[in-house]
Computed example of a mutant assay.
Amino acid sequence: MTENEEEAPAAYAGGQVSTSVQLGVLGDRPTLDVPFNITGYTNKMMEDNQVATVDDVIVHDPSVSDQTLSGVSSAWNIRGFKAQQQDVQLNGLYGIAPNGSLGGTINYITKRAGSEPLNRVKILYGSDSVFTQQVDFGRRTDDGKAGLRINVLNRNGETSFDEHVRTDSITIGADYKGDRYRLGFDYGYVYNKVS
C-alpha cells in the first residue's frame, strides 16, 4: 500500500509500517481497531527499499511468500493459503475472502497529488536485464482542493524466469476535497506482454 506524501499516516518506529490503513468505503482505520490482521506499508518503506514490484514489498512480511513461477501471472502464499492476482484489490476492501483466498489479499492504494508539486523520474536496471523508466507528476490547485497525479511506466527486458517482459502503463488519479467530502477518479491502462 502506498500513500501520498501529504496524507502519510502515522507510522511505527522506522517509518516503514503505518499505524492506519485505507479500507475503501470504511475510510482510514487504525490497524489495531480492524477485526482482522492487516499491514500497511508506507511510501518511505518503498522508497528506502527501491521497490519495483509487489514482490519487493511482501518480502518484508513473514506471513506472505512469493509463489510466482512465471511473469505471466502472480501468486502468493498468505498465511498458508494460496492467493493469486484475482485476490488483489484496488483502493479498498471488497470482501473478507475474495475468490476463495482464505489467507488474505493484497490491496493497492492509488497515488494522489500532495500539497507540494512533484516531478520525479526514475530509471532502474535489474532482475537480469530489465530496464525500467518511470515518470511521476503531481499538482494541486492553489487552494489545495483539486489535485492531479499522473504516473507513466515502461519496463522491458529479460527476467530471471528466462522470459522477455514488456510492460507499458499509465495511471491518472484526480481528486477534489470539499469541506466534508472527497471525490476521486482513477484511470489506469496496463499493457503487459510476456514471451
Score class of each variant (00 low, 15 high):
Ser20Tyr: 07
Ser101Gln: 08
Pro62Arg: 06
Met46Asp: 03
His164Gln: 09
Val72Cys: 03
Lys44Glu: 12
Ser73Asp: 08
Leu153Pro: 00
Ala174Trp: 09
Tyr41Phe: 15
Val121Asn: 06
Leu124Tyr: 12
Arg155Gln: 15
Thr110Leu: 05
Val34Trp: 09
Gly138Leu: 11
Thr132Tyr: 02
Phe81Trp: 13
Thr39Met: 06
Gln85Thr: 09
Gly184Ile: 00
Glu158Gln: 13
Gly27Ala: 07
Lys177Cys: 00
Asp66Ala: 03
Ala10Lys: 09
Ala75Gln: 11
Thr2Tyr: 12
Gly184His: 01
Ala75Pro: 01
Val51Gly: 04
Pro62Asn: 12
Ser101Asp: 04
Val165Leu: 13
Asn4Val: 03
Val88Leu: 14
Asp162Cys: 01
Val72Arg: 13
Gly24Lys: 05
Gln16Met: 14
Val152Pro: 00
Asp143Gln: 11
Arg182Lys: 15
Val194Asp: 01
Ala146Phe: 15
Arg149Ile: 00
Thr42His: 04
Ser115Ala: 15
Tyr41Cys: 04
Gly95Tyr: 06
Ile123Pro: 02
Val54Cys: 06
Met46Pro: 00
Thr53Lys: 10
Leu124Val: 03
Ile123Ala: 13
Glu3Asn: 14
Gly71His: 03
Arg140Leu: 08
Tyr191Asp: 05
Val152Arg: 07
Val194Glu: 02
Val194Ser: 02
Val88Thr: 12
Pro62Cys: 01
Asp55Lys: 14
Val165Ile: 13
Leu26Ser: 07
Leu23Ile: 10
Lys111Pro: 04
Ile172Pro: 00
Asn37Val: 09
Lys111Ser: 13
Glu5Val: 09
Asp162Thr: 08
Thr159Cys: 05
Asn91Val: 04
Val88His: 06
Ser18Trp: 03
Ala97Phe: 11
Leu183Phe: 08
Ile38Asp: 07
Asn77Lys: 14
Val34Pro: 10
Thr31His: 01
Leu102Ile: 06
Leu102His: 11
Ser129His: 09
Asn91Gln: 14
Gln16Cys: 05
Leu183Gly: 10
Gly92Val: 07
Gly80Arg: 10
Phe161Gly: 03
Gly114Lys: 06
Tyr181Thr: 01
Val25Thr: 13
Asn4Gly: 13
Asp66Gly: 04
Tyr125His: 15
Gly103Phe: 10
Leu23Thr: 07
Lys177Leu: 03
Pro117Ala: 10
Glu158Ser: 12
Tyr12Ala: 13
Gly104Phe: 07
Val152Asn: 09
Phe161Glu: 04
Asp168Cys: 00
Glu6Pro: 00
Phe81His: 14
Tyr108Phe: 15
Leu93Met: 15
Arg182Pro: 00
Ser169Leu: 03
Asn107Thr: 15
Tyr41Asp: 01
Gly40Met: 12
Ser129Asn: 14
Leu124His: 08
Lys145Arg: 15
Gly157Cys: 07
Thr141Lys: 08
Asn91Asp: 15
Ala146Trp: 08
Tyr125Ile: 05
Asp61Pro: 01
Lys82His: 11
Ala83Arg: 11
Thr110Val: 11
Asp33Ala: 14
Ser70Gln: 05
Glu47Leu: 05
Asn77His: 06
Thr171Tyr: 02
Leu148Glu: 04
Gly147His: 10
Leu93Cys: 05
Lys177Glu: 08
Leu26Glu: 08
Asp186Val: 06
Ser129Ala: 15
Asn49Ala: 11
Val194Thr: 08
Lys193Leu: 01
Ser18Ile: 01
Ser160Tyr: 07
Gly80Val: 09
His164Trp: 08
His164Val: 03
Phe36Trp: 09
Asn4Gln: 03
